[in-house]
Each structure stands twice: as C-alpha cells, then as structure tokens.
Design a protein around this nucleic acid. Structure first.
Length: 464
RNA sequence: GGCGCGGUAGCAAAGUGGUUAUGCAGCUGACUGCAACUCAGUCUACGCCGGUUCGAUUCCGACCCGCGCCUCCA
C-alpha cells in the first residue's frame, strides 16, 4: 500500500486515487525567463520518480506540469534583452526540455502554458468576482479578498493575524486588505496585455495554476506538487482561488520537495552560488546528477557540493562495474526465484513508503553484491537490477559508455588509452613490470583506472 | 515575533523500542607480477539532560545548535 506524506495534513497517508486505477497529478513547473537551476532539477527528478513509480504500480497517470510564460520577471528580462517576450520564453522552454532530457526526466502528459489558457483564467476570475471573493480595485487590478475565504492558511498553517503581524510588504492602498493578492494586473506601458472585462492586463501568478489544473484535471484531483518555497503563498492562494470558485476540494494530496543548498548555504543569486543544470552537466555525467538528487529522500533538503557529486559518481561506478562484467541481457525478470521476489518486494516496500529512494537504492546495492558473488550466472539478477533501476530513471546506459565515455571530462581519448594499454600488455607479456607500471601510472594521472580481468584489460574514467 | 523542519559513525544518507541499513573513504585477509575490480571480515553512530520501560538512537519533556517559510524564488 502506497503511503504519501501530505503537506496539508502533515502526515503520511494511505494513497487512494479518486478514480480507481487512475491518478491525476499536477506539478508547478517553471517560469521561463532563465535557464533551469539545480533546484528545478530536484523538483523535476523527484516528480519524475513519483510518476514512474505510480505507472510501475499499474496506475494510469495523467501528469500535468505547467509552464509559466507570463510574468513580471519575463517582461523585465525581455526588456533588458530588447527581445520579444514570447521569443525569450520559447528559447528557455527549449532549453528546459534539453535539460530534462539529459536528466532522463520523462515529459509530462500535458504541459499547459498560461498564455494558452487566457479564457479559463478570465472565466475563473469572473466567477470569483461574481461570488464576491474578488473585487476590481481603483488601479485596474483585480484582487482576491483573502478574509472571505475561511480556510485561508490551511496548507501553510498560517492564520491571517500572524500574517499581518509579519507584514513586510509595502502596502498597496488600492487593496482592501494588504494580504489580498492580485488575480489580474492592469497593463503597463509597453508590456504584453490581454483584453478582459476589467481592462487590458495580464493574469496574476497564482490564478494560472488554478485555471490550468482545473481545466486539465477537473475541480478535484489527487496530487499537486512543487518546490518547497511554493507552499506559501503560491499554493495557499491556489487553494483559496479554486475552492472559492468551484465550492469543492481542490487537491487531496499536496507534495513538496526539499530545498537545494550549495555548500550548506541557501542557493541564491546574491550569494553567487547559483548553478544551472547545464553548468553542472559540463562537469558531471547527467546520470551522476540524477543519482545525487535521489540519494536523499525527496522531502529532505539536499546539499550540492563537489564532494557529494563525486561520491555519487563513485557509487554509480559500482553499479556499472557490476553490469559491465556481465553480458548485456534483456527480457522479463523471471519470477521463479525467492531471492528475486524478495528484492522486488523490498524495493516496492521502500518506494511505497513515501517514495523512499535511499532505501530503494540500498536494495539495488544488495543486488549488486549478489551479482558480483555469482561467478557464472547472474542473468536474472542483472535484468532485475536494470528493471528496478528504470523505476528510478537510472542504470539504462551501456556500462562502457558510462565508465569510459563522458566526453566533458576527456583529457585523453579512448584511442590513446587503447594504444597505451596495448603497450603495457606487451610489457607485461615480457615481464617488464617496471615499464608496465610506468604506463599504468601515466594513465592514472590522466584519470584512467585499469582493470586486468580474466578476459583482458578494461579501463574506466574515474572520479579522482 | 509567528509557523514548520532537522541534528545518525571520516563523508553522504535510511531506519528501528532489544537483532548488519546502504554507498564512498579506512583497516585486515583472499584474488593479482604489483594494482584495480570483486569477495570475506572489520573500526568509527545515533546533539545534551531528564522521564517512561526489563531495555531507547527510536516514545515523552526540557535544553543547546542548525535550517526553511512568513517577500519574487523549484
């Protein structure tokens, strides 16, 4: 039985979809005005694992992840670049797709964009005005009337008095209440704008997610996910909008990923410790990055550091070394073995426990040991390892490619390595150990580790 | 100030009221020309103080420390 920690209740709950066998999931995607950073990667990978596991469990899944392509930051960046805003967003959408593909993040089923859902947005704003949950202010903005929604704060466990006490925003006098938030913003000179009953303008940040999730998945759906900093105010406001508009529950299970830190500091542009996915991929194999992101539980904060990435690299070397020494095999996992069934069961138990990937990885390492122990026939274990690895989006590469191939690190070519190995093996045949060792040392300096196996010498590029 | 999260061995990271997490690193042995890989064994733990219990890292309470959100942010 799958259990998921629900941010709304603060507890792990047994998961039961509203429609038996079918899961509807919405995850807040990115605002496309810059390259994705590793915080985005963490959310992408976390929910990619969730989606893979739900499907593996046999659920039919509709996975929606939006793209925010209307936003102040987008307009600001477009102005700075002197570039049409929609050209800017298109560029970064393409970059995002490249990053995802590199990290083996499967595309969601639907990827709605705010600009393509204006009708639904306008409709929801109108409904909120009709129900008096929203009002059109003197400045042309439409605001949500926060104190009309009794449950406001139920997700982030805040109440209106506390929020008022911690008030730090400059007060917008057009608002009835400083905590009211914008559903629709009046157009500014030179910025993209859409027609509406309240004048030309553009949607506020929160309304698009309410409108798109509702139109893609219905009034109430199973899972809504996102980054840790979206819980308040973004998700809180989504609840307020959607539940006021539909009169029904918005989401059953809220999931929030943990934060990414860099060298134990909050990742931020002002600290200059901001890493984009593509920067990181300059240095590390994408699978290493993905592995690193799932070595912690998805709800824990995770610390990006050179040391941790190197450890991830070494851990994957163990997996691929085991896979390399055995012939490539494919097929279904035979279920005639108690041992195999036991591993499958323990993997499933780990994943059923709120997607406990560290525990699941521990099971995979035990399979590796078993493969390494089996001197002759490890075929079914290898098939199992790759099958379970696929649920985590790992271990699908050719072992040689992983161990030898990551181009970015190359200081020496594979051909040069082969030449030196041949040279060394001749020296070994001549029992000229000094020369053989000298060649091996030379390769080691270049980051190449040799392995004189029964079937000849193999090599790999090592993480230091 | 309000709300919330966490402190596990050298590093990373799960978990459990009593029995080996796991990976990397270290040490010993086997294997190897020597290594590497691998296997076997092994050393480093559960922030501090009380309480409950036959027994707590695991439950309860206090304390110390770190962090997040409350403002755009995944």
């Amino acid at each position: 039985m799958l259990k998921i920690y629900n941010s709304l209740s603060g507890e792990k709950e047994s998961f039961k979809p509203l429609i038996e066998g079918h899961v509807h999931m919405y995850v807040c995607g990115m605002t496309v005005y810059d390259f994705c950073h590793i915080g985005h990667a963490r959310v992408m990978v976390a929910f990619d694992v969730v989606s893979r596991y739900l499907r593996q469990k046999g659920y039919q899944l509709t996975y929606v992840r939006n793209i925010t392509d209307v936003d102040d930051k987008i307009f600001k960046r477009a102005r700075e670049n002197d570039e049409p805003y929609d050209q800017l967003t298109q560029r970064f959408i393409e970059a995002m797709h490249e990053d995802e593909k590199a990290l083996s993040v499967l595309p969601p089923d639907l990827e709605p964009r705010a600009t393509a859902h204006m009708d639904q947005i306008l409709e929801m704003v109108q409904t909120l005005i009709d129900k008096e949950y929203a009002y059109c202010a003197k400045n042309g903005d439409v605001y949500y009337r926060v104190d009309r929604f009794a449950d406001y704060g139920k997700l982030s466990k805040k109440n209106l008095e506390d929020l008022r006490a911690g008030e730090r925003i400059s007060v917008e006098e057009a608002k009835e209440n400083p905590l009211d938030f914008a559903l629709w913003k009046a157009a500014k000179e030179g910025e993209a704008a859409w027609d509406s009953p309240w004048g030309r303008g553009r949607p506020g940040w929160h309304i698009e997610c309410s409108a798109m999730s509702t139109s893609c998945l219905g009034h109430t759906f199973d899972i809504h996910g996102g980054g840790p900093d979206l819980k308040f105010p973004h998700h809180e406001n989504e609840i307020a909008q959607s539940e006021a508009a539909t009169g029904e529950d918005y989401v059953k299970t809220w999931m929030h990923a943990g934060a990414v830190r860099v060298d134990n500091e909050k990742m931020s542009k002002s600290l200059g410790n901001f890493f984009t996915i593509r920067e990181v991929l300059q240095k590390y194999n994408p699978e290493v990055v993905r592995y690193f992101l799932i070595t912690s539980h998805y709800r824990s904060h995770i610390n990006y550091s050179e040391d941790n990435l190197r450890q991830a690299q070494q851990a994957l070397e163990r997996f691929y070394t085991a896979l390399r020494r055995n012939p490539v095999v494919t097929g279904d996992v035979p279920s005639d073995s108690e041992l195999l069934d036991e591993y499958k069961k323990r993997f499933a138990e780990a994943m059923d426990d709120d997607f406990n990937t560290p525990e699941a990885l521990a099971v995979l390492f035990e399979i590796v040991r078993e493969i390494n122990k089996a001197s002759v026939e490890a075929k079914s274990l290898i098939i199992l390892l790759r099958e379970l690895g696929a649920v985590l989006g790992l271990l699908q590469q050719n072992p040689e490619q992983f161990l030898q191939g990551y181009e970015q690190n190359q200081g020496i070519t594979a051909e040069e390595v082969e030449v030196l190995i041949a040279l060394r093996n001749q020296a070994r045949a001549d029992k000229d150990w000094a020369k053989a060792d000298q060649v091996r040392d030379q390769l080691q300096v270049a980051g190449i580790v040799l392995d004189d196996g029964r079937g000849g010498t193999t090599w790999r590029r090592s993480a230091e």
